[in-house]
């Protein structure tokens, strides 16, 4: 015999809560998620005035010069000249293209003995199923070594430009420069939708990135693309949960040491392989069975190292752009 629940009991069931949530009668996060209303960014009257004055002054200073007739004529000439130059460039390139060997055919000069050896012996000589990975990390590894240092030197320049070095301040006061750099101060925090989405997506993205890195020698992918994917996951996490959460596991020190470790591993491993190769010494690193995950000699560790560097670098770029620090 069925028994009717009293309303009191019904209120405790899951169904009640579910339907209530569905109808939007109650916010399920109310009282459970920390919600801090955003402090509105208020300019005092003087600041606004100063800003407008500065802006006007700049435009006055400029247009005294920029609107003279000579400048306009020169500008017009420059425009016309550059359009003509571009057209000539396009025409010349098209002209050249029309004489190049036809695309898509097998009997062009590009398809000579070089790719032949890469394809026919690549699996045995490098142990990588993905011939492109084998090529860039073993046959032509010097280029790739240079490439990872391009990324490194770019990070250094970004650090020079955007890193804010903390100046000792007494009372936690924020300087104008810092406020300009760190725009998160004036932004909403703890957006529930974003946090939920990030909660679901970030692990998937990072796992996919790890898969791409580890699978670099077996299929499409590799250190760089996997690292970029992981970096994107970290950026999403940062956006959802804010710098305080990420600072727990990722600070400037972490970045420094990870990139130092990976790059020096890369350098040393490749130096060993170059040195043994050039002096015709035996390379002791085993190749393994092609197709297995632990195979292809140095390619897998190198992919992991590159992946770590790239993930950290991408995150560092974002953090630098956003806040001027980690």
């Amino acid at each position: 015999m069925s028994r009717k629940k009293t309303e009191q009991e019904y209120r405790k069931t899951f169904a009640f809560h579910f339907f209530r949530w569905l109808n939007g009668e109650k916010d399920p996060y109310l009282g459970e998620v920390e919600m801090k209303p955003q402090e509105p960014y208020k300019e005092t009257e003087e600041e606004v005035k100063a800003r407008i004055r500065e802006k006007n002054m700049i435009s006055r200073r400029l247009y005294g010069v920029a609107k003279s007739k000579e400048m306009k004529g020169l500008e017009r000439f420059y425009k016309a000249a550059s359009i003509i130059f571009c057209c000539i460039l396009i025409y010349l390139l098209l002209f050249t293209v029309s004489y190049l060997p036809p695309v898509g055919t097998a009997d062009r000069p590009v398809n000579n003995e070089v790719p032949q050896r890469y394809i026919e012996n690549g699996l045995q000589e490098t142990g990588a199923v993905n011939i492109v990975s084998g090529m860039i990390l073993d046959y032509r590894a010097f280029d790739t070594l240079g490439e990872s240092h391009v990324l490194f030197v770019a990070t250094v320049t970004v650090l020079i430009l955007l890193r804010l070095d903390k100046k000792k301040k007494n009372d936690g006061e924020i300087s104008i420069e810092e406020a300009e750099a760190n725009d998160r101060i004036y932004e909403p925090k703890n957006d529930a939708i974003l946090q939920m989405a990030a909660f679901v997506l970030v692990p998937i993205i990072i796992i996919f990135g790890i898969y791409v890195i580890l699978n670099g020698h077996l299929g499409p992918g590799g250190g760089f693309s996997g690292g970029a994917i992981i970096g994107a996951g970290l950026i999403l996490y940062l956006n959802a949960f804010g710098f305080q959460k990420t600072e727990r596991f990722f600070t400037e020190k972490t970045y420094k040491w990870i990139s130092f470790g990976s790059l020096s591993f890369y350098c040393i491993a490749k130096s060993y392989s170059f040195f043994t190769g050039a002096n015709h010494l035996h390379n002791i690193i085993p190749k393994g069975t092609p197709g297995a995950i632990l195979s292809s000699g140095l390619i897998l560790p190198l992919n992991i190292a590159v992946g770590l560097v790239v993930a950290c670098t991408m995150y560092a770029f974002y953090a630098m752009f956003r806040k001027g620090g980690f």
Partner: peptide, 13 residues
């Protein structure tokens, strides 16, 4: 031919 792919990979970085 795998060579152009490898070169472009470097270039994208």
């Amino acid at each position: 031919n795998p060579i152009p792919s490898g070169l472009v990979l470097t270039g994208i970085v």
